[in-house]
Design a binder for these strands. Sequence first.
DNA 1: GACGCAACTGACCGTCCGGTCGGTTTAACA
DNA 2: TGTTAAACCGACCGGACGGTCAGTTGCGTC
Lengths: 203, 203
Amino acid sequence: MASTHVGTADAASRILQAAETLFAAKGYDAVSLNLIASSAAVSKANIFHHFRSKSDLYFEVLRNAAAASRVDVGNLPAQSDYHERLAAFARQHLRNYVNHPTRARLLVREFLDGTAQIGQLLTRDEFARNFDQLVNLLKQGQRSGQLRDSVDPDLVATLIIAANVFYFRARVTMRQIGAPIFDQTPDAYSDLITEIILRGIRT
Amino acid sequence: MASTHVGTADAASRILQAAETLFAAKGYDAVSLNLIASSAAVSKANIFHHFRSKSDLYFEVLRNAAAASRVDVGNLPAQSDYHERLAAFARQHLRNYVNHPTRARLLVREFLDGTAQIGQLLTRDEFARNFDQLVNLLKQGQRSGQLRDSVDPDLVATLIIAANVFYFRARVTMRQIGAPIFDQTPDAYSDLITEIILRGIRT
DNA sequence: GACGCAACTGACCGTCCGGTCGGTTTAACA
DNA sequence: TGTTAAACCGACCGGACGGTCAGTTGCGTC
């Protein structure tokens, strides 16, 4: 067995988990160490026993989030139909967000908003991996002749990733605006996105 | 002439402008009233003479940003070619962001991240206006027979807005990743986006 | 020139912040 | 059982925070 009298996990990981939740919900500045400590059932001093500083704890949280997200990319089935392959990628990409919302909030915020270089290095890595994978997929599709040569793969990759990021961050508010697509399941949403990008909307 | 000895504008608007810049750059929690005061060449106490509280000042800044953004929507030329009309909308939408980056940062952040209801009411309004305008444009296109009936206008509007928001917030970092499209001018970028959405990428 | 009032300030308040420190408990090992 | 080191805590620190207040200045009005 792991611990004897307190909590369910050891203090360090309890601190990390509480910090992840709080940082994801409120952002770095709005979260105090007192809050993290009480939320993790730990004295504030003990946080400094396990982590050098508040920013150190934050970067550790980011590092863990990036690492956890890394195992999610997974290999896509090597089908020959690029419609299916693109759809599968978009679905999986969006699933990674909605299935791990706190982690995703952390990474997306740091990526879009990040002023700290260290945080950007971590999340940039993450976005670059997805981006490159998608671009390569599109280039293969062009080589196979199923996708038009004249379109820039970077641009298409951006479109798909942007659509997913937007869905993840804005869906609650967009629902209130009265945009019923955001009631769709993530899978249905990314399928619709993929279909439009492939076929276009012109008659 | 307006003021006699200090600054160029009256204190209240100097405070508002300094607050807008700082809030846009660092976010609400990371900006202190001391910083705003010194940045506006005003005593901290004077901020409380003009505004009830820090959050009050922040919402005033948001309100101004939303109001300023409202005049930007402008009417689009009523052409019959929906390719051109869509392209014009996308271009104008993205221009509104890049030409007023601090304002746009404030609104986009509050829209995507906003936990405060008051902030959401302000920015939601803004996004809803753009969204509805774009959806109506697409519906007209469908009625005229130039756009496929089977696609959901909400979805297409989302795609365009998401692509623009992503460009605006992520372009610097995406450039570092090595995605050369983000070196394109905003106009060129939104033209490319529009073209893909209209024609699709399939051969 | 006295009045009234908005604009404005420096000094101050209580609170909470990130972080430190001295000391106690726990647990593995000799 | 004594030693050692990590885990942990309560109390504390200087400083910054948002906010208050008593008082001064500038100015239009009668």
